[in-house]
Amino acid sequence: MWRNLFQNRRAAIKEGGDNLPMGLCFAAQSGNVLFLNRMMESLSYRLIGESLQNATYFWDRIADGNLQNGIVCEKRPELTKENQYLIRFANGECRTFTRSILKLDGEEIVEITSADTTDLYGLLCEQERKNKSLFQIRKRLQEYQKQIVKAARDEELLQAKMRFHDELGRTLMQTRRALLDDKGEDAVLEALDSWKKTITIFDLGEWRTKTKDPLTYLIQTANAVGVKLVFLGDFPKEQEIRELAVKIAAEALTNAVRHADARKLRIESKKENGWQILSFQNDGNKPKGPIEPVGGLAGLIRQIEAAGGVVTIEWTPRFSLTVKLICTF
């Protein structure tokens, strides 16, 4: 009676295991199979071409990739963990095999399972295709951004040359009147001051062609025209951001000398939430009203915005120029 009851329960367990959609195998540490359902037996024939008689041998064949033709074994970090393998069949079906150690009454039992992960693998492949496409789009956008920045740089350089030409013409006319019209020493000194400002504009454009660090040249130019640069925070070190930051500082220095008759320019630099933030304030004359960007400043703003940056100009209570640049630029 008890034997019949035990056999009936064992048969019920076997029937329940056979009806599972997943492959299931239990074995001793030696590899001897204790339980094997119908799905795992079928998978064994598909994978290694023979019945699953020893779990250790079966798992070693999977781990070594020693499988039937057309079947591929992979370790995919996105889908598999330790003691897991992804098996791809020639018909596109994917299954994940997992080996675990269970403890039962002080003994260690080896459990091998197989789950259908075809849909999950398909989603992963689709995501990889989308990521690849997005990467290509990103590369094109970056190239397009570089072209925009280059065009803005060329335009800014042209504007600087035109501005210098205009300043040079005005200064020459002012000097001529001061010398020929005999307007006195004050007129000559005023003309001399105009020459200093004109030379400043020229020098601030020259740093692009220098081999030395542009920031060093900017500091030397500021000293030459009597403006002290006060730095707060660490000035950007990344090459592209540093170059653009110096161009902004050069424009701020030009305007400080040209329009505000300033003697000090404060440059504050900090990083915040993925942004490189630069602020410029001078101690010169206060603006009489809102500032409309023109000339070199307008071209520089277009270049900054093309690179994803943001520019804010305030005129009260004092002139202030704030620029936000993306740190990865």
Rank of each mutant, 00 (worst) to 15 (best):
residue 117 T to M: 12
residue 36 L to N: 07
residue 109 I to V: 15
residue 147 Q to P: 01
residue 89 F to C: 03
residue 106 G to E: 12
residue 96 T to P: 01
residue 38 R to E: 11
residue 139 K to H: 08
residue 79 L to S: 01
residue 104 L to G: 05
residue 38 R to M: 01
residue 43 L to P: 01
residue 88 R to K: 13
residue 109 I to K: 14
residue 27 A to H: 09
residue 77 P to E: 15
residue 97 F to I: 05
residue 34 L to H: 08
residue 79 L to V: 04
residue 36 L to P: 01
residue 122 G to D: 04
residue 142 Q to P: 00
residue 55 A to R: 00
residue 91 N to S: 12
residue 146 K to A: 14
residue 55 A to S: 11
residue 24 L to C: 06
residue 139 K to S: 06
residue 64 D to H: 09
residue 121 Y to D: 04
residue 96 T to H: 02
residue 27 A to V: 06
residue 50 E to V: 02
residue 79 L to F: 03
residue 101 I to L: 15
residue 82 E to Q: 12
residue 69 N to Y: 05
residue 135 F to D: 11
residue 73 C to S: 15
residue 71 I to G: 03
residue 139 K to Q: 11
residue 34 L to M: 11
residue 138 R to E: 13
residue 145 Q to N: 03
residue 141 L to W: 05
residue 34 L to I: 11
residue 85 Y to S: 10
residue 128 E to H: 04
residue 58 F to K: 05
residue 78 E to T: 06
residue 42 S to P: 00
residue 84 Q to W: 01
residue 58 F to W: 05
residue 43 L to E: 13
residue 97 F to Q: 02
residue 24 L to G: 04
residue 55 A to L: 07
residue 56 T to W: 03
residue 52 L to M: 13
residue 69 N to M: 05
residue 61 R to V: 00
residue 100 S to R: 14
residue 83 N to H: 07
residue 30 S to A: 15
residue 43 L to T: 06
residue 32 N to S: 14
residue 57 Y to N: 11
residue 135 F to A: 15
residue 37 N to G: 10
residue 79 L to D: 03
residue 56 T to E: 13
residue 89 F to I: 04
residue 71 I to W: 03
residue 74 E to N: 08
residue 31 G to Q: 13
residue 56 T to K: 14
residue 72 V to F: 04
residue 53 Q to R: 11
residue 65 G to Y: 00
residue 126 E to P: 00
residue 51 S to I: 02
residue 128 E to P: 03
residue 68 Q to S: 15
residue 130 K to W: 04
residue 87 I to A: 08
residue 90 A to K: 11
residue 125 C to S: 12
residue 53 Q to M: 15
residue 53 Q to A: 12
residue 62 I to M: 06
residue 26 F to I: 05
residue 59 W to S: 04
residue 48 I to G: 02
residue 74 E to M: 09
residue 34 L to Y: 13
residue 49 G to M: 01
residue 115 A to K: 10
residue 59 W to E: 08
residue 96 T to F: 07
residue 28 A to E: 15
residue 130 K to E: 12
residue 39 M to Q: 09
residue 147 Q to D: 14
residue 102 L to M: 09
residue 110 V to F: 11
residue 86 L to V: 02
residue 92 G to F: 12
residue 111 E to A: 14
residue 67 L to I: 07
residue 118 T to W: 10
residue 65 G to T: 00
residue 93 E to L: 14
residue 112 I to S: 13
residue 29 Q to S: 13
residue 112 I to H: 07
residue 114 S to K: 00
residue 94 C to T: 07
residue 92 G to H: 09
residue 138 R to C: 10
residue 62 I to H: 11
residue 89 F to W: 05
residue 48 I to A: 03
residue 132 K to M: 06
residue 137 I to N: 06
residue 101 I to C: 09
residue 128 E to N: 07
residue 78 E to D: 13
residue 66 N to P: 00
residue 55 A to C: 06
residue 143 E to W: 03
residue 137 I to S: 08
residue 82 E to G: 10
residue 52 L to F: 07
residue 52 L to N: 08
residue 55 A to T: 05
residue 55 A to E: 12
residue 105 D to K: 13
residue 136 Q to S: 08
residue 30 S to G: 15
residue 98 T to S: 14
residue 145 Q to Y: 01
residue 121 Y to P: 02
residue 60 D to E: 10
residue 67 L to R: 01
residue 88 R to Q: 13
residue 100 S to Q: 14
residue 118 T to H: 08
residue 141 L to E: 15
residue 26 F to K: 07
residue 125 C to D: 10
residue 55 A to K: 00
residue 105 D to P: 02
residue 133 S to C: 04
residue 31 G to K: 05
